[in-house]
Design a protein around this nucleic acid. Structure first.
Lengths: 260, 260
DNA sequence: GATAGAAGTTAGGCATGCCGAACTCCGAGA
DNA sequence: TCTCGGAGTTCGGCATGCCTAACTTCTATC
């Protein structure tokens, strides 16, 4: 009988440490990890020591923690699994984009390497998931689009929705209703002061040119959107080897590159 | 963060207790469960008590154990998951029938009800898995074909392969090579004495009438085959409401039947 | 019917991963 | 520089599930 092989906890910790550090390069605090995983800080301390012992995180007592190269590699493997599973559930099993997260969270610990490969094949090697989050390559590199929070973008200038935070299913459903999706073209028309609403002109992806409408977004909705200056390149990759202009590469390639 | 929710162990025990009792109605012995799960008998004793406490098995001290109605219901749910997952891996992800078992063993604990339903939809509500094992219905009933071991069938008489034991991947690959598959038509031509080989005339499923060949099976191969007197009915069900003539129904339907 | 050996159970331990409570460190402000 | 409070750690405990070793019960045979 196959053993569940409770690597689950370690995998979850690595993933969380990675994602909390994904945007800012800083170290990650014990408290942040505890909050994200819904466990006590004492549990995090304990696990931090274990992870440090196995060389997956660098951790100074009373200081923050940071993934080592090996930890980063494993974390990216988990991120790849999670995002491929989400893509598979949506494209092959008819899930809507607000339904996938919880199931993917469980499945990512259960799918074999063979299954990951088969899903990847069947999906035609997707490079991002239904929420626009980039899928690490099989050799462990994350191509991270140069995207900024919608809140930071200049009113009147054209932006493209690159990633949408998938934390809140209700918000995702609302986005779907209002035509806000990955690759939608958006222009900020007006920002009401003191955390007020943002008026946005939206061109849904694939819509005929000029087919736009206006939507009013609250602060929570604005915070869930990351936008980029340039549209994403469709497959295949653009001449920089990426789907986005301006792309940060995270992770150490597992397979040495030929041309170097 | 989703918790792994270690129901895994309980689920495995229920499944094993069910499958050890599937063919003979007797109670299941501690030792048999231990051997199948690869754990010690003391672990089984412990778990037996816990399962008895939660009302999932009936267990007399120093005696065998047997699933209660509730335990049977849960076991059949797991069997359904396992067999649907296997069918999905083969039909939708291109696994070969000798590759699916281990992955299914892990996934059956991880797939949500939603995912089970979606797989079932996509597969067109299959009633058996790639090895011919019947898939319990969503309301918890197993339609078990009236099949007998190949070893028990009379020489010279026509039989139909109903189920193939999926324990040994190498054997499954060999069966595939020799045209032995679910629904193949077989006639025992000769049985050599003292556990010797069995000569079998095989008509692979879907082959033109008369396209047969002979295969010599060793004892292990013979033991892996269950055959029935009648061919299985294709979808939809035959007039008895089953895919097989002569069918034992196992399990208490969860949803009360309308016509009663 | 006595009894030996097989089958099953209990006891005591180990590992994981979680918790709350108590303690320690560190740095910001007095 | 001192100190106080928050962040981080350590400690003792709990639950699960597994193990080995010792013990109990059942049963088949004499």
């Amino acid at each position: 009988m196959a053993k569940p092989e409770n690597r689950t906890a370690v995998e979850d910790y690595l993933k969380v440490i990675f994602s909390l550090g994904e945007w800012q390069e800083e170290t990650v605090s014990n408290a942040a990890v505890a909050a994200r995983l819904g466990v006590s800080t004492s549990s995090v301390s304990e696990m931090a020591r274990k992870l440090a012992d196995s060389g997956l995180v660098a951790h100074k007592r009373y200081g923050g923690m940071r993934l080592t190269d090996e930890g980063l590699e494993q974390a990216l493997r988990m991120v790849r699994r999670h995002r491929l599973v989400e893509t598979f559930l949506v494209r092959s099993l008819g899930y809507s984009w607000d339904e996938v997260h919880d199931d993917a969270e469980v499945l990512e610990h259960a799918v074999s390497t063979l299954m990951v490969d088969r899903m990847d094949d069947q999906l035609g090697r997707p490079w991002r998931d239904p929420h626009g989050d980039p899928i690490p390559t099989p050799d462990g590199v994350l191509h991270q689009p140069a995207a900024e929070p919608l809140a930071a973008s200049t009113a009147g200038e054209r932006r493209f929705v690159a990633r949408i935070d998938d934390d809140d299913p209700a918000l995702l459903r609302w986005f779907a209703d209002t035509g806000i999706a990955v690759d939608a073209e958006v222009v900020v028309r007006e920002r009401k002061p003191f955390g007020g609403a943002t008026r946005l002109e939206v061109t849904p992806p694939g819509a005929a040119a000029g087919v736009t409408h206006e939507v009013e977004l609250g602060a929570q909705a604005v915070a869930a959107l990351l936008v980029s200056l340039e549209p994403a390149s469709p497959d295949p990759l653009n001449d920089k080897g990426c789907h986005y202009v301006g792309c940060r590469h995270i992770g150490v390639p597992r397979v040495s590159e030929k041309n170097r």
